[in-house]
């Protein structure tokens, strides 16, 4: 029951994330959508880990822990890039200022 429930949830979360990535063009929320997609994949892995006979299997748990850190790294850089991108495109003269 539990595994089934969380598998379905993971699938639907993946769908929501993918939908967001496809339709959203606003950068921060597209990033949120990608994060939801990644979380769905993590959930898949943990369901598998939890249902392993003699488990829980530590390998997927460790993989997800690594995945979470990678996700936060990507998110942090993406947010910095978004902020700078907006600062540049918000200028009336994109090539002006301190761009040489």
């Amino acid at each position: 029951m539990t595994g089934w429930l969380f598998s379905v949830t993971a699938g639907l979360l993946f769908a929501i994330g993918l939908y967001g990535v496809l339709i959203r063009t606003e950068l921060v929320r597209r990033l949120l959508a990608a994060n939801v997609m990644a979380t769905a994949v993590f959930l898949f892995l943990i369901v598998v880990a939890a249902e392993t006979p003699d488990g829980p299997d530590p390998v997927p748990q460790a993989m997800v822990l690594t995945g979470i850190v990678i996700a936060v790294s990507l998110t942090a850089f993406a947010l910095a890039l978004i902020r700078h991108f907006r600062a540049v495109t918000g200028e009336s003269d994109p090539e002006g200022g301190d761009d040489d």
Binding site: G3, W4, S7, V8, A10, G11, L12, L13, F14, A15
Partner: peptide, 10 residues
Amino acid sequence: AGVGLAWLMH
């Protein structure tokens, strides 16, 4: 995609 994956994982 989501339903397919859920079914697959199940």
